[in-house]
């Protein structure tokens, strides 16, 4: 069976998925990146290779997205290396062709994508602060000693709301501590946090945009019921959560890889599951050639320098 792979390397999670020719998801893994994107991709591919062997998959295309896309693209031999925004939109439009607004909240960035007639017409991405992202919730859950998986359900049990300053993570945290000292319950504080996160997100990213239903909410944070309810309250409309909300970026890029390979008629660049065994080492150093002091990233595959980037003048990147 022909399958198309999508890999999304994010700051918090690495997602590896495979779709078949009829775009059914046949494999999906959500793996914590833990600052080691290469290992987490290898882990995902290893699990996939086991399933591929038993079910007889033939990989026909690979797409890579997320913040680590350039490096992992090199490692696996990607046919398509796409930015997260396009990838997310591609998946959502595929499952919900009439979608008009996509909310995506990931580990360290969040986006609003505006779609009209299946085409992205506008988007915005957080630039200044991480207050509206998953890492913030993760961190606060840890501080309150609540597993992040129970965070959302606990928020739903709150009877009262408490307003928490959501401008910035640091201020939100100090405000939260103050409210705890005033005697609010954990559930109320968590609900307050969810409200603050959504308020912050809509204020920062939704500014100057007309948000129209249907709304689709995806990204890892869409697992959080408290956030979903806060969204529904604040936009005043029902929110759709896709079945594969956590891996939509990976699905989107797999779809692009599929259409690219089909359009070009060329065989895939995929290096095969053997790439798991490759000795793939990224290294970075500060160039001392001039006072720009660029941080240059060097990728070494099996002892040989395969690619370099990050320099402003091209001294290193053109040397490979």
């Amino acid at each position: 069976m022909r399958v198309y792979l999508g890999i999304d390397i994010g700051s918090v999670s690495t997602n590896v998925i495979a779709i078949d020719e009829n775009t059914n998801v046949v494999f999906a893994r959500y793996i914590r990146t833990n600052g080691q994107p290469i290992n987490s991709v290898k882990q995902g591919l290893r699990e996939l290779s086991v399933q591929a062997l038993s079910d007889g998959y033939e990989v026909s295309a690979v797409g890579v997205t997320g913040s680590g896309r350039q490096m992992i693209g090199l490692m696996v031999g990607a046919d398509v290396v796409k930015n997260e925004i396009t990838a997310h939109a591609a998946a959502t439009v595929h499952f919900y062709p009439d979608v008009q607004t996509i909310f995506e909240i990931g580990g360290q960035d969040s986006k609003i994508i505006i779609v009209k007639d299946k085409i992205v017409t506008d988007f915005s991405m957080n630039t200044v602060c991480a207050a509206g992202t998953g890492s913030f919730l993760d961190h606060q859950a840890e501080r309150l000693n609540i597993p992040i998986e129970q965070f959302g359900d606990l928020a739903l049990t709150a009877e009262n709301t408490v307003r928490i300053a959501g401008r910035c993570t640091v201020f939100a945290e100090s405000d939260m501590i103050a409210k705890q000292q005033y005697g609010y319950s954990k559930a109320e504080i968590i609900k307050g946090l969810c409200d603050a996160l959504v308020r912050n997100y809509l204020n920062n990213l939704g500014r100057g945009k007309v948000l129209q239903p249907p709304f689709v909410f995806q990204g890892g944070v869409a697992a959080n019921k408290g956030i979903i309810r806060a969204f529904e309250e604040q936009v005043g409309h029902e929110i759709i959560i896709p079945k594969y909300f956590g891996v939509m970026g990976a699905i989107g890029v797999a779809l692009s890889a599929k259409s690219q390979v089909e359009a070009s008629g060329q065989p895939t660049n995929f290096k095969g599951f053997d790439c798991i065994e490759l000795d793939f080492v990224p290294k970075s150093f500060e160039c001392s050639g001039c006072s720009n002091a660029c941080e240059v990233i060097k990728v070494i595959i099996n002892g040989e320098v395969a690619a370099m980037w990050g320099d402003k003048c091209g001294k290193w990147s053109s040397s490979v």
Binding site: S67, N83, E84, I85, T86, V120, D122, F123, A263, S264
Partner: peptide
Amino acid sequence: ANIQTRLEAFIDLCKNRSNKQQISPAEA
């Protein structure tokens, strides 16, 4: 990273709007 992602997404958006997305044989 943030700038690069936004630029890439923006160019995709522009191409899609003007329907210039198809991959040319040269690109392939």
